[in-house]
Amino acid sequence: MIRLILHLLTHPALFIVLTLAVYALSLRLHARWAWIHPLLSASIVLIFLLWALHIPYASYNTGGGLFTYLLGPATVALGVPMYKQGIKLKATLPRLSLVVLAGSAVGMITAGGVASLCGASHEMVMSTLPKSVTTPIAVEVSRSLHGDPAVTAAMVLLTGLLGGVIGPAILRLARILHDHAVGAAIGASSHAIGTASLFRSSEVQGSVSSLAMAMAGIFTSVLAMLLNLYWRAQGAGHP
């Protein structure tokens, strides 16, 4: 009997269903109390359940990892809202890319600068640089800069979560209310997690955010490449 229960408790299908159930619960909570961000409540409930049931993360991930694989297709699927908004955005596209380029540069400089001022090691500073862009890009940029990809992935997730939770409120406080401006700011700062939050309230904001997120990913990769070339030109390699 115990063996049967143990078998079921470690079956991947259980972890798929568990993840879906936690997600469904978090959407209910969000519908009832709009300020509870679904990703935050879902993560807290799931972490608690895994801890309470003594399920190791590696075991959970045999089923939960399925959803991580779907992040690739979901990123590609962002093409549909981008295309649908494309006609309206055609005139603003050059200005939007300028805005996102500025945001990406400021993001890398402040992330690295503050980490460095707080006494972080060179590897940690490099790990923070790509934290505003979506996970697959950030991890590769971090590797190219000799950062720690795992630390970068954590920074990316926490940045997206914090941006999704408080980003819209901060923009409202700063009286930045235009759909295009909100979309650009959330997409450039909080990548796919922020974008997903915006889609729940506004199709236009979500689409601009998808576009800004893709642009930020490209600009951050290019800026990191330039940084590497600059260090190589200095002849010192990585300081």
Binding site: T92, R95, L96, L98, V99, V100, A102, G103, S104, V106, G107, T110, A111, G112, V114, A115, C118, G119, A120, M124, T128, K131, S132, V151, M155, L158, T159, L162, G163, G167, I170, L171, A174, I176, H178, H180, A181, V182, A184, A185, I186, A188, S189, S190, A212
Partner: peptide
């Protein structure tokens, strides 16, 4: 260091991008 970097950089990106977009778009 990581938390300070995260919060400062998030605010900086939100306000630069949002502010510039507000002016330009």
């Amino acid at each position: 260091a990581l938390l300070a970097s995260l919060v400062a950089s998030l605010l900086a990106v939100l306000l630069t991008t949002g502010g510039l977009a507000h002016l330009l778009l």
